[in-house]
């Protein structure tokens, strides 16, 4: 199992942000974590990435517990946060090498891994540009390329298409879907947009910190939108 979340609950002060959340993402599976704003997606990401320690429940990344073996878990995980994490003053290439160094990849191995990751995301020709000069879509591509550089087994993306135009959004969503299929990567894609969920994707609907549905998306996008609205509307 790529990602395993079991009975996770978390409170911010007196406010319950997550309530007994459980789901699993197998290798090669694209899991859409669908939830409206304030559903608890970002809190769940903070727990999944070890930024905050879970007080209740257990999270395993490629078999490593994030609470007891954080370094093993983090080394098998690639993350794209909702907020951009690029160093805008550095070039694309330097951003890649910086990340490589943080993950213990140096020298020729770092250069080869950077080159391959940029090639995969169609960013090679932009390697010498400063991150500041890239448009939103390319910045996201760079972040995904970077997150894949150390060949993780699990890829977490928190609303990665925020601020992108429709064409970039579609292209990015397609690309990550095929990545999951081709490389047997476990992908957790948090979003509030139903058109980013494809038929056959694993679907976890989160609302007010609780899992309302955990299964597979079978419907077309418009049907899913209706069901999502009715689910979250009923729960509200």
């Amino acid at each position: 199992m790529g990602l395993s979340v079991e009975h996770i609950s978390h409170d911010w002060g007196k406010k319950r942000a997550l309530d007994d959340v459980s789901f699993h993402v197998a290798y090669g599976e694209f899991c859409a974590l669908l939830g409206p704003n304030g559903a608890g997606k970002s809190t769940l990401f903070a727990l999944l990435t070890g930024l905050v320690s879970p007080r209740q429940g257990r999270i395993e990344i490629a078999g490593s517990d994030i609470a007891t073996a954080p370094r093993a878990a983090l080394s098998r995980m690639g993350v794209v946060f909702q907020q951009q994490t690029l160093d805008l003053d550095l070039t694309v290439w330097r951003n890649m090498l910086y990340f490589a160094g943080l993950h213990g990849i140096v020298g020729k191995a770092a250069r080869v891994a950077s080159q391959e990751a940029l090639e995969r995301l169609g960013m090679v020709e932009r390697a010498k540009e400063r991150a500041r000069d890239l448009n939103g879509g390319h910045r996201r591509r760079l972040e995904i390329a970077r997150a894949l550089m150390h060949q993780p087994e699990v890829l977490l993306l928190d609303e990665p298409t925020v601020g992108l135009d429709a064409a970039s959004r579609k292209s990015l969503t397609d690309h990550v879907h095929s990545l999951a299929q081709d490389t047997k990567l476990s992908v957790l894609w948090a979003t509030h947009l139903t058109d980013e969920v494809y038929a056959g994707d694993r679907l976890v609907v989160l609302h007010r910190g609780a899992v309302l549905e955990n299964g597979y998306a079978q419907e077309t996008s418009s049907d899913l939108t209706d069901r999502f609205l009715s689910l979250t509307g009923e729960a509200a």
Partner: peptide, 13 residues
């Protein structure tokens, strides 16, 4: 700016 997240998710203490 968010770049701290990148540091904190590196597999280093």
């Amino acid at each position: 700016m968010g770049t701290m997240r990148l540091l904190l998710t590196a597999p280093v203490p």
